[in-house]
Simulated assay, not measured.
Amino acid sequence: MDIDAFVTAHRPVWDRLEHLVRHRRSLNGAEVDELVDLYQRTATHLSIVRSGSTDEMLVGRLSALVARARSAVTGAHTPAWRELVRFFAVSFPVVAYRARWWWLGTSAVFLAVTTAVAAWVAGDPQVQASIASPIEIARLVEHDFADYYSENPAASFAGRVWINNAWVAALTIASSVLLGLPIFYILWMNAANVGVTAGLMASRDKLDIFFGLITPHGLPELSAVLLAAGVGLRLGWTAIDPGPRRRAEALAEQGRAVMSVALGLVVVLLICGLIEAFVTPSGLPTWARIGVGVVAEIAFIWYVMVFGRRAAAAGDSGDLEQAPDAAPSAG
C-alpha cells in the first residue's frame, strides 16, 4: 500500500472528524450524523493501515482519533456516576488481579531484601556505627521514630503522607516506560530504608515499637506501592514480549489499563494516609492499632481478588478506553 497516497486521500476525513470531536457539544443534528459516519470510516481506515503499513506514528494518531470519536459518539449516554462505579468495581481491581503474580513476586523479593538488610544491620555493630553514632541511634529508637507520627497535626500529616505516597506510586508506574528498570532502584531504596530502621530498632530491643507503629498503615501502604511496582514491571515486560499481538497494540492497551491502577491507588493511599495520621499515633492499644492495619490489608486483598476475578472471568481487561485499538471496525 502506498501510505503517502492513502494519507493524502483520507486526511480531509480525519481532519473533519477531529474538528467535529473538538466541537461536539455544539453540533446540530446533521453534524452528529456526520460525526458517526466519519467515525466509522476512520475506524475502517485504521484497520487498513494496521494490516498494510508499519507506520506506528500514523497508527497511533488514528487510534487516538478513533478513541476520542468513539467517546464523543457513545459517551453522552453513560452517566458519570456509572463510569465511577464501573471504575472501582471493574477497571481498577481487574488490572490488579491480572498482575497478581507480578505483584506477589515483587512483594516476596521486597520482603526478603528488607529482612536481609534488617538482620545485617541488627547483627553487626560496625554496620550500625557506619550509619549513625550511638547517640543518634539512641535518639532514633527512643524518641524520633515514634515522634514522627505525632509531631504534626493529624490532618496536615495525612495530606503530606498521601501526596508523598501517591507520588512514589505514580513514579513507580511511570518508570515502566524505561522497561521498568528504574523500579528496581525505587524498590531497593524503600527496602533498604525500612530494613535499616528495623535493624536499628531490633539492635536496641525495640521491635515491638517498630511493628506497633508501622503495621497499621504499613501493610496496606506497602501493598499499594508494590502493586504499582508489579503492574509497572508487567508493562515493561510487555514491551519485550507483547505476545501474539503487535507490540504497539499490546502496549497501548496495557498502558491504558495501568492508568486504572495509578488512579485507583490515589484512593487506596488516601485511606493509608488517614490510618497513618489518626490510628498509628493514637492512644489505642498496640493490638488494636495492628488490627486496623490487618483488617485494611485483608479488605484490600479481598476487594482485588473478588472483584478482579469476576471482571477477568467476564473478559474485561481494565482498558480505560475499552480497548479501541483491539478491533476497530466500520460497524
Rank of each mutant, 00 (worst) to 15 (best):
I275L: 11
L270G: 15
G291E: 12
E249P: 00
E249C: 06
E253A: 13
R309N: 09
A252H: 04
T280F: 15
A262E: 10
V261W: 08
R310S: 13
L265R: 00
L263Q: 02
A311M: 07
G255A: 10
I301S: 01
L274S: 03
I271R: 00
D319S: 13
A311G: 03
G273H: 10
W302N: 06
S282N: 13
R309P: 00
V267I: 11
M259L: 12
G264Y: 00
I271P: 00
L251E: 12
V292D: 11
V306T: 05
E297C: 03
A311T: 06
R289Y: 05
R247E: 13
P281R: 06
V268R: 04
A312V: 02
L270Q: 10
G283Y: 05
G273A: 15
A248W: 06
A257T: 01
P244H: 01
S282H: 13
V266S: 06
L251W: 02
E253I: 14
V295L: 15
G293P: 02
S317Q: 05
V306A: 11
I301W: 14
L263D: 05
M305E: 12
V267G: 02
E253R: 15
M305K: 02
L251V: 12
A248T: 06
P285C: 09
P281D: 08
A257C: 01
V279D: 12
A277V: 04
R289K: 15
I301N: 03
M259S: 10
T286A: 14
E297D: 08
P281L: 08
V266A: 11
F300D: 07
P281T: 02
T286I: 13
A311H: 01
A250F: 07
I275N: 09
R245S: 13
P281Y: 06
I290L: 15
V258I: 11
L265Y: 00
A296E: 12
A296S: 13
G291H: 10
A299K: 06
A311L: 07
G308D: 08
A288C: 03
Q254R: 15
F300S: 08
W302K: 02
E253F: 05
R310G: 01
E297R: 02
V279E: 12
R289A: 12
R245D: 14
M259P: 00
A257D: 04
A250H: 06
D316Y: 09
G291Q: 12
E249M: 11
W287Q: 04
W287L: 10
L274N: 03
A250W: 05
R245K: 03
A296R: 03
G273C: 14
C272F: 05
V267Q: 04
A313E: 15
P281Q: 04
I298G: 06
W287Y: 11
C272T: 15
F300M: 14
V258Y: 07
L274D: 04
E249Q: 14
